[in-house]
Simulated scan of single mutants.
Amino acid sequence: MWFEIIPPCAIICVALYLPGFATYHLNKAICGNAYRRNTDERFDRVMYMRDYRINKNVYQGQGLEGIPDK
């Protein structure tokens, strides 16, 4: 009957939903932010490393007070 498709459909839907759900919560637990930064381009990687060097936390920005005075 038509209702025999419900269990396989539920399994497929859960299997497709889990990676996105897990990525969101793992990034939130490990990095402190639910979304990871995109570092596909060279400029983005340079900005990521700059934020890490200045603040040690790439997900919390600081203003000029975060830049050391040599």
Rank of each mutant, 00 (worst) to 15 (best):
Met1Ala: 15
Met1Asn: 13
Phe3Ile: 10
Phe3Ser: 08
Phe3Leu: 11
Glu4Leu: 14
Ile5Gly: 03
Ile5Ser: 11
Ile5Pro: 00
Ile5Arg: 13
Ile5Val: 10
Ile6Trp: 03
Ile6Glu: 00
Pro7Ala: 05
Pro7Met: 01
Pro8Lys: 03
Pro8Gln: 02
Pro8Glu: 02
Pro8Ser: 07
Cys9Gln: 06
Ala10Lys: 13
Ile12Thr: 10
Ile12Phe: 12
Cys13Leu: 15
Cys13Ala: 15
Val14Met: 13
Ala15Leu: 15
Tyr17Ile: 08
Tyr17Asp: 04
Leu18Ala: 13
Leu18Thr: 11
Gly20Pro: 02
Gly20Gln: 07
Phe21Cys: 10
Ala22Trp: 12
Thr23Tyr: 06
Thr23Trp: 08
Tyr24Met: 12
His25Lys: 06
Leu26Thr: 03
Asn27Gly: 01
Asn27Val: 00
Asn27Tyr: 04
Lys28Leu: 15
Ala29Gly: 00
Ala29Gln: 05
Ile30Glu: 08
Cys31Val: 01
Gly32Glu: 06
Asn33Ser: 15
Tyr35Trp: 09
Arg36Val: 02
Arg36His: 06
Arg37Lys: 15
Asn38Glu: 10
Thr39Ser: 03
Thr39Met: 10
Thr39Glu: 04
Glu41Phe: 04
Glu41Leu: 06
Arg42Gly: 01
Phe43Ile: 10
Phe43Arg: 08
Arg45Pro: 01
Arg45Thr: 07
Val46Arg: 03
Val46Pro: 00
Met47Ser: 04
Tyr48Ser: 03
Met49Phe: 12
Met49Asn: 13
Arg50Phe: 09
Asp51Phe: 01
Asp51Leu: 01
Asp51Ile: 00
Tyr52Ala: 08
Arg53Phe: 13
Ile54Lys: 10
Asn55Asp: 02
Lys56Arg: 15
Asn57Val: 03
Asn57Phe: 05
Asn57Ser: 09
Tyr59Ala: 01
Tyr59Gly: 02
Gln60Ala: 07
Gln60Thr: 12
Gly61Met: 11
Gln62Ile: 03
Gln62Leu: 12
Gln62Tyr: 11
Gly63Asn: 11
Gly63Cys: 07
Leu64Phe: 14
Glu65Gln: 13
Gly66Ala: 13
Gly66Arg: 09
Ile67Met: 07
Ile67Trp: 10
Pro68Arg: 09
Pro68Ile: 09
Asp69Glu: 11
Asp69Trp: 05
Lys70Val: 05
Lys70Met: 06
Lys70Ala: 06
Lys70Tyr: 11
